[in-house]
Nucleic acid binder design. Structure first.
Lengths: 185, 185
DNA sequence: TCCGAAGACTTCAACAGTAAAGTTCGAAGC
DNA sequence: GCTTCGAACTTTACTGTTGAAGTCTTCGGA
């Protein structure tokens, strides 16, 4: 026995190996379904690592980039309240408070009381924040185009269509799930 | 003016609205690419929420479920070291130590020193852990089949094939990214 | 007018994760 | 055989997130 007998296999399993292992333990598993789901999960994880690396070069974190994106999507004048931000980002209001603190300290956003309703707070993107978003977006979109390079135009269309169909299905199943990730019932 | 004038639009943007907003700020964006990427991200988030809800019913967290899955994939006798687990899960060894502590306390795994090499530690799935995995897997796979219900068999195949092609592309681009999520260069 | 309730954040304590330093055991050289 | 090096995990200090309690403002009724 030349190989280390006690070490099972210090070998990162491929997608197919993973699915085969599941099937050995759970006969009813549909390998085609599992392949889609597992590929989706792995792909997403790798992409987040890649995004993290890229935006780190701009001196921001993935978490901060998410806030910038949300404010940009809200459109000019790029203002949202902490509560609304928290809801869209899937965070608790407490976490949002802290994140805004940090980002305000870095000059990416401003935080002010709403003069019309002094209970509300307005978080607004600064010019610097908008610039960071643009730089991050440039890097991200070039990465994304590179990623999809091997897919023909009609494949991209089909892929986008199928994914949005799946998305619609989960959204219908859990109407509120745009909310907090921890909103577990 | 009946509507609140200062509130931009407390309205969760749809995928298409989001992409349209990006395009207003960044002309060079390819909407087809962005649609694929954004749908993928949203879908993944919703699915994680759904998984979290389901496994919570079994008294475990998503994080714990990931550990169970990794041990099951490793095959009988369901043993891996903390370091290997950490690498596969994208965690630091320190986080792994803590997570194993918790799971050992709950009886899902055991943690023992390797008698052949007392520097090493062996984490092994217990019967209870294996049962939990099976229950979680049952729920997950039925959720997943329901999710893919609207896709014809050939669509599922095409989707799986495209996703694995994308996965291969990111993996080639960052050969080590199976590692820690924070391994940002 | 005043009071009570609700809404929108913030604060606080506890928990999960990271980075870096510490510990322990095994292996390789002198 | 002793020592030094390195590998594998643990510990420590700090960051970010959660859940619950607290604060402040507004609104509606007595």
């Amino acid at each position: 026995m030349p190989d280390t007998p006690e070490t099972p296999g210090p070998h990162e399993p491929s997608l197919d190996e993973q699915i085969a292992a599941y099937q050995r333990e759970f006969r009813d598993l549909d390998p085609q379904v599992e392949k889609v789901v597992s590929a989706l999960g792995r792909l997403n994880r790798r992409m987040n690592v890649a995004y993290g690396r890229q935006v780190a070069a701009l001196g921001i974190s993935n978490a901060e980039w998410e806030v910038l994106k949300t404010l940009v999507v809200s459109g000019a004048p790029y203002r949202l309240g902490p509560g609304e931000l928290a809801k869209r980002l899937g965070l608790t209001p407490a976490a949002m408070t802290h994140r805004i603190d940090r980002m305000a300290g870095e000059g990416l956003v401003t935080r002010d009381r709403d003069e019309n309703n002094r209970v509300r707070v307005i978080v607004e993107l600064t010019d610097e924040g908008r610039t960071k978003w643009l730089e991050a977006m440039r890097m991200a979109s070039s990465f994304e185009e590179d990623l999809l390079q091997d897919l023909a135009a009609e494949e991209r269309a089909g892929l986008g269509e199928m994914l949005t169909r799946l998305l619609r299905r989960v959204e219908d199943a859990q109407p509120d799930a745009g909310g907090r990730l921890t909103d577990l019932d």
